[in-house]
Protein backbone atom coordinates (compact mmCIF):
# COMPACT_ATOMS: atom_id res chain seq x y z
CA UNK A 1 0.00 0.00 0.00
CA UNK A 2 1.37 3.36 -0.97
CA UNK A 3 1.99 5.79 1.81
CA UNK A 4 -0.79 8.33 2.21
CA UNK A 5 -0.19 12.02 2.54
CA UNK A 6 -2.10 14.60 4.49
CA UNK A 7 -3.20 17.58 2.51
CA UNK A 8 -4.88 20.69 3.71
CA UNK A 9 -6.42 23.11 1.28
CA UNK A 10 -8.65 26.09 1.67
CA UNK A 11 -11.53 25.49 -0.70
CA UNK A 12 -14.00 28.29 -1.29
CA UNK A 13 -12.92 29.87 1.98
CA UNK A 14 -13.16 26.75 4.12
CA UNK A 15 -10.20 24.69 5.29
CA UNK A 16 -10.49 21.05 4.30
CA UNK A 17 -8.24 18.11 4.99
CA UNK A 18 -7.82 14.71 3.46
CA UNK A 19 -5.48 11.77 3.50
CA UNK A 20 -4.57 10.99 -0.07
CA UNK A 21 -2.44 8.80 -2.26
CA UNK A 22 0.37 10.82 -3.78
CA UNK A 23 -1.00 10.16 -7.25
CA UNK A 24 -4.48 11.52 -6.55
CA UNK A 25 -5.40 14.34 -8.88
CA UNK A 26 -6.71 17.59 -7.50
CA UNK A 27 -9.88 17.20 -9.53
CA UNK A 28 -10.59 13.88 -7.84
CA UNK A 29 -9.81 15.35 -4.44
CA UNK A 30 -12.37 18.06 -5.07
CA UNK A 31 -15.00 15.81 -6.58
CA UNK A 32 -14.65 12.53 -4.73
CA UNK A 33 -13.32 13.60 -1.33
CA UNK A 34 -14.87 17.03 -0.92
CA UNK A 35 -18.03 16.32 -2.95
CA UNK A 36 -17.56 19.47 -4.98
CA UNK A 37 -18.92 17.94 -8.15
CA UNK A 38 -19.36 21.21 -9.99
CA UNK A 39 -15.85 20.78 -11.36
CA UNK A 40 -16.01 18.31 -14.22
CA UNK A 41 -13.72 16.00 -16.14
CA UNK A 42 -13.93 16.02 -19.91
CA UNK A 43 -10.65 14.47 -20.99
CA UNK A 44 -7.50 12.83 -19.79
CA UNK A 45 -4.94 14.83 -21.70
CA UNK A 46 -5.56 18.32 -20.26
CA UNK A 47 -7.19 19.76 -23.37
CA UNK A 48 -10.79 20.44 -22.46
CA UNK A 49 -10.64 22.73 -19.43
CA UNK A 50 -13.83 21.31 -17.87
CA UNK A 51 -11.82 20.87 -14.69
CA UNK A 52 -10.54 24.45 -14.43
CA UNK A 53 -10.45 25.94 -10.93
CA UNK A 54 -8.67 28.89 -9.36
CA UNK A 55 -5.61 27.91 -7.38
CA UNK A 56 -3.92 30.69 -5.43
CA UNK A 57 -5.63 33.17 -7.68
CA UNK A 58 -4.68 31.55 -10.99
CA UNK A 59 -6.88 29.48 -13.27
CA UNK A 60 -5.46 25.93 -13.42
CA UNK A 61 -6.65 22.67 -14.88
CA UNK A 62 -7.22 20.58 -11.79
CA UNK A 63 -6.69 17.37 -13.74
CA UNK A 64 -3.06 18.30 -14.20
CA UNK A 65 -2.40 19.14 -10.56
CA UNK A 66 -1.76 16.49 -7.93
CA UNK A 67 -3.69 16.84 -4.73
CA UNK A 68 -0.39 16.90 -2.84
CA UNK A 69 0.80 19.81 -4.96
CA UNK A 70 -2.24 21.73 -3.83
CA UNK A 71 -1.35 21.24 -0.18
CA UNK A 72 -1.59 24.60 1.51
CA UNK A 73 -3.16 26.25 -1.50
CA UNK A 74 -6.29 28.29 -1.77
CA UNK A 75 -8.74 26.85 -4.25
CA UNK A 76 -11.85 28.36 -5.68
CA UNK A 77 -14.30 26.17 -7.55
CA UNK A 78 -17.53 27.06 -9.32
CA UNK A 79 -19.35 26.43 -6.05
CA UNK A 80 -17.44 29.35 -4.58
CA UNK A 81 -18.05 31.73 -7.45
CA UNK A 82 -21.53 32.85 -6.55
CA UNK A 83 -24.86 31.51 -5.43
CA UNK A 84 -28.19 31.42 -7.19
CA UNK A 85 -29.26 34.47 -5.19
CA UNK A 86 -25.99 36.27 -5.68
CA UNK A 87 -24.56 35.27 -8.97
CA UNK A 88 -21.06 36.30 -9.89
CA UNK A 89 -21.12 38.59 -12.95
CA UNK A 90 -19.59 35.77 -14.99
CA UNK A 91 -22.38 33.42 -14.02
CA UNK A 92 -24.92 36.14 -14.68
CA UNK A 93 -23.36 36.75 -18.08
CA UNK A 94 -23.52 33.10 -19.05
CA UNK A 95 -27.15 32.94 -17.99
CA UNK A 96 -28.17 36.19 -19.64
CA UNK A 97 -26.44 35.49 -22.95
CA UNK A 98 -27.22 31.78 -23.19
CA UNK A 99 -23.57 30.84 -22.83
CA UNK A 100 -24.38 27.24 -22.00
CA UNK A 101 -26.48 24.38 -23.27
CA UNK A 102 -25.75 21.07 -21.57
CA UNK A 103 -23.76 22.95 -18.95
CA UNK A 104 -21.06 20.33 -18.62
CA UNK A 105 -18.19 22.49 -19.81
CA UNK A 106 -19.59 25.60 -18.16
CA UNK A 107 -18.08 25.56 -14.66
CA UNK A 108 -14.59 25.07 -16.07
CA UNK A 109 -15.09 27.66 -18.77
CA UNK A 110 -16.36 30.20 -16.27
CA UNK A 111 -13.29 29.65 -14.11
CA UNK A 112 -11.04 30.07 -17.14
CA UNK A 113 -12.90 33.29 -17.95
CA UNK A 114 -12.38 34.36 -14.36
CA UNK A 115 -8.66 34.00 -14.99
CA UNK A 116 -8.91 36.08 -18.15
CA UNK A 117 -10.91 38.88 -16.60
CA UNK A 118 -8.50 39.15 -13.70
CA UNK A 119 -5.80 40.13 -16.17
CA UNK A 120 -7.88 41.99 -18.68
CA UNK A 121 -11.20 43.60 -17.91
CA UNK A 122 -11.60 45.00 -21.38
CA UNK A 123 -10.90 42.08 -23.69
CA UNK A 124 -11.60 42.35 -27.39
CA UNK A 125 -13.53 39.59 -29.15
CA UNK A 126 -10.27 38.17 -30.43
CA UNK A 127 -8.72 38.25 -26.98
CA UNK A 128 -11.70 36.41 -25.55
CA UNK A 129 -11.56 33.77 -28.27
CA UNK A 130 -7.85 33.39 -27.68
CA UNK A 131 -8.34 33.05 -23.95
CA UNK A 132 -10.85 30.27 -24.60
CA UNK A 133 -8.23 28.24 -26.43
CA UNK A 134 -7.69 26.00 -23.43
CA UNK A 135 -11.31 24.96 -23.16
CA UNK A 136 -13.69 22.99 -25.32
CA UNK A 137 -17.43 23.39 -25.53
CA UNK A 138 -19.19 21.03 -27.91
CA UNK A 139 -22.66 22.56 -27.58
CA UNK A 140 -22.62 26.30 -28.06
CA UNK A 141 -20.29 27.05 -30.95
CA UNK A 142 -18.75 29.60 -28.53
CA UNK A 143 -20.54 32.66 -29.88
CA UNK A 144 -22.79 33.13 -26.88
CA UNK A 145 -19.89 32.33 -24.59
CA UNK A 146 -18.04 35.25 -26.15
CA UNK A 147 -21.09 37.44 -25.58
CA UNK A 148 -21.37 36.18 -22.01
CA UNK A 149 -17.78 37.14 -21.33
CA UNK A 150 -18.28 40.58 -22.86
CA UNK A 151 -21.31 41.12 -20.69
CA UNK A 152 -19.52 39.90 -17.56
CA UNK A 153 -16.56 42.18 -18.24
CA UNK A 154 -18.87 45.12 -18.66
CA UNK A 155 -20.72 44.38 -15.43
CA UNK A 156 -17.48 44.10 -13.52
CA UNK A 157 -16.10 47.30 -15.07
CA UNK A 158 -19.26 49.19 -14.19
CA UNK A 159 -19.33 47.93 -10.66
CA UNK A 160 -15.69 48.86 -10.19
CA UNK A 161 -16.37 52.34 -11.49
CA UNK A 162 -19.27 52.67 -9.15
CA UNK A 163 -17.31 51.45 -6.22
CA UNK A 164 -14.66 54.01 -7.05
CA UNK A 165 -17.25 56.78 -7.03
CA UNK A 166 -19.05 55.58 -3.95
CA UNK A 167 -16.50 53.58 -2.00
CA UNK A 168 -18.97 52.87 0.79
CA UNK A 169 -21.03 50.52 -1.38
CA UNK A 170 -18.12 48.34 -2.32
CA UNK A 171 -18.14 45.96 -5.31
CA UNK A 172 -19.22 42.50 -4.49
CA UNK A 173 -16.90 41.11 -7.07
Amino acid sequence: MTKKWNVEVKVNGRVKRAEVEPRLLLVHLLRDEFNLTGTHIGCDTSQCGACTVMMDGKAVKSCTVLAVQADGAEIQTVEGLGTVDQLHPIQAGFWEKHGLQCGFCTPGIMMAVNGLLQDNLNPSEAEIRDALDGVICRCTGYQFIVKAVQQAAETIRNSQQQSQVVPAEGGSV
Binding site: L36, G38, H40, L87, W95, L100, F104, T106, M110
Partner: peptide, 22 residues
Protein backbone atom coordinates in the same frame (compact mmCIF):
# COMPACT_ATOMS: atom_id res chain seq x y z
CA UNK B 1 -36.17 34.21 -22.26
CA UNK B 2 -33.24 33.13 -20.15
CA UNK B 3 -33.24 29.42 -19.48
CA UNK B 4 -34.84 27.96 -16.40
CA UNK B 5 -32.32 25.12 -16.30
CA UNK B 6 -29.30 27.38 -16.00
CA UNK B 7 -29.10 28.48 -12.36
CA UNK B 8 -28.21 25.02 -11.14
CA UNK B 9 -25.73 24.45 -13.94
CA UNK B 10 -23.87 27.73 -13.53
CA UNK B 11 -23.55 27.28 -9.78
CA UNK B 12 -22.12 23.78 -10.06
CA UNK B 13 -25.29 22.13 -8.84
CA UNK B 14 -26.05 20.03 -11.87
CA UNK B 15 -26.17 16.33 -11.24
CA UNK B 16 -24.39 14.38 -13.93
CA UNK B 17 -23.86 10.63 -13.75
CA UNK B 18 -20.35 10.90 -12.34
CA UNK B 19 -21.67 13.17 -9.60
CA UNK B 20 -23.70 10.33 -8.12
CA UNK B 21 -22.11 8.72 -5.10
CA UNK B 22 -23.75 5.85 -3.25
Amino acid sequence: LKRKEDPKLITGNGQFTDDIKL
